[in-house]
Design a protein around this nucleic acid. Sequence first.
DNA 1: AAAGAAATCAGTAATGATTATCATTTTTCA
DNA 2: TGAAAAATGATAATCATTACTGATTTCTTT
Lengths: 134, 134
Amino acid sequence: MNRTNYSAKREAIYSAICSTKTHPDAEWIYNKVKIDFPNISLGTVYRNLVMLRNEGKIISLGVVKGCERFDGNVREHSHFICTECGRIIDVSRNFALHISNLDELVQKELGVKVESHDLAFYGKCDLCREGQEK
Amino acid sequence: MNRTNYSAKREAIYSAICSTKTHPDAEWIYNKVKIDFPNISLGTVYRNLVMLRNEGKIISLGVVKGCERFDGNVREHSHFICTECGRIIDVSRNFALHISNLDELVQKELGVKVESHDLAFYGKCDLCREGQEK
DNA sequence: AAAGAAATCAGTAATGATTATCATTTTTCA
DNA sequence: TGAAAAATGATAATCATTACTGATTTCTTT
């Protein structure tokens, strides 16, 4: 198997993700890292996102409006996703107690191995609501 | 505003989605409808998926392995998604009571309008587990 | 410290799902 | 029925992501 070598770029990518609560996509991360590494390639960002995700250092929040979004906060927490602008906001209230025991129920019912779960809320964020005052 | 005219193809697309529990993607639906409408275009499928979703007759389950997946069952229910093969399985156990009251908490905390939520479980399905006997 | 091996990278081409376009066909309703 | 509106087929365009390749960096073993 391939080992993992040190990479300053990978560290910068990870730092960029952890530096924000915007749950960025590859392009955002690329532009952020570019400040310190002007010659970085977008392909390098994508390649390292896969590696960081496999290592469990970041998680994917899925595809929102065509772009995959990432989070450096790997502790269990829920998100609100605005269906209008695509903004993703952390829900600080912890719902783990409500859900963690459900994993076992799903495993039993379906005969599968549940490794994670995700609770997301969808709707209109505050900015989009006032933007259309409704 | 534009009205919505009758369309036999749209009905067939909706029927195709409701005829299966596989939570299909556009390509699957296209091939299914093609049996009865050999000249249907893939673009028509995509166009009608948008319309059916806007009407609330189907829901999107998000992008799994690069393809958006759809469900004709719009009643609240959770899904298990296999991270290996992309299979999506309905969870029959109803968790609505665990979650519905959380919408309000999220609205209060973030000042947003929550319109829906989604609880998904991820892991390895029975087939993928035995396929790698582990 | 230096060399060879392995991993990472930049730059660029390729991929593939989805969307847009437009001329033609179908549906609606007066 | 016939004109206006909506839907469609065929195809081109878009755009996020992946694959490729030769150069560069990191690691290991002297």
